[in-house]
Design a binder for these strands. Structure first.
Lengths: 143, 143
DNA sequence: TATTGTTATACTCTATAACTATA
DNA sequence: TATAGTTATAGAGTATAACAATA
């Protein structure tokens, strides 16, 4: 197998595993009335308190799209807005306690859903996979 | 690091790499006026000629959603419908030559977009990653 | 003037329900 | 009766353009 073939096969495997994980995330989201994007929003807010524009940039979305996403989650009491104390134009976004609880529950659900697949690997293979994925994760890309 | 910690870190890395690859696919799709779902449709049709319901099942979507997706792509001349010769109720879906060309171009774009990230791994590491991803890919899950 | 955020608008994606045609 | 597909409807996700408020 040439190095070119490996690249093709690897891209294929990467795309397929992406769709597989996306399927799990989409299902768990749907069971909690959350879209994949909302799931991402909650993941980001887990340890950050960004302004609207920052959040949109993380997700690669327009700020107007962000407004709608925040509106709907805010209406459900899962997250909240607050004026940024240092810049009167900016609005900070953060999880409410209810949103934080939900995020924690979602995280456990995702882990439990992926664990069976990952158990097909031996423990030392799991460590290996982790080591191989890490270099691929662009620090600029948000979760 | 305990095995429990590895699982947590691995799930995290897997989800993050999923969003990263999804970002690439979404961008390339958008540049060609295609949604992520349309991209998947084209990937599936690349080597299959399923009926509407089969396609919907692959994607985990309702058949009515499928009708709309097919409509829009058909209007653009990228795919076509045909009566299934063995079952008068069923409709087969397949790529037109234009759709096939586009799919091929998209594939190359995706590979070229992911190649730089993958080049952070040494050749033998890429082979290793491929070997580790393969057991995770459920044959039941479509691309 | 430039930036931050919201709103109006239009289109795609999605599911549910109701329908037609075929098995 | 059951299955395959379409259509009507409604809501979420998305971007573009126009706007108000602040820097």
């Amino acid at each position: 197998m040439t190095s070119e073939d490996t690249l093709d096969a690897l891209v294929d495997a990467l795309v397929r595993s992406t769709f597989q994980v996306t399927g799990v995330l989409t299902r768990i989201g749907a069971e909690n009335d959350l879209s994949l994007t909302q799931l991402r929003v909650f993941g980001i807010l887990r340890d950050r308190r960004p302004r609207v524009t920052e959040l949109a940039a993380y997700l690669g979305l327009d700020k107007s799209t962000m407004s709608g996403l925040i509106d709907r989650a805010e209406r459900r009491g899962l997250l909240a807005r607050d004026r940024n104390p240092h810049d009167g134009r900016a609005v900070d976004v953060f999880l409410t306690p209810a949103g934080r609880d939900l995020t924690q529950r979602l995280y456990v659900e995702v882990r439990d859903a992926l664990a069976p697949e990952l158990s097909r690997l031996r423990p030392e293979q799991r460590v290996q996979l982790l080591r191989l994925l890490e270099p691929l994760l662009d620090p600029a890309a948000a979760r």
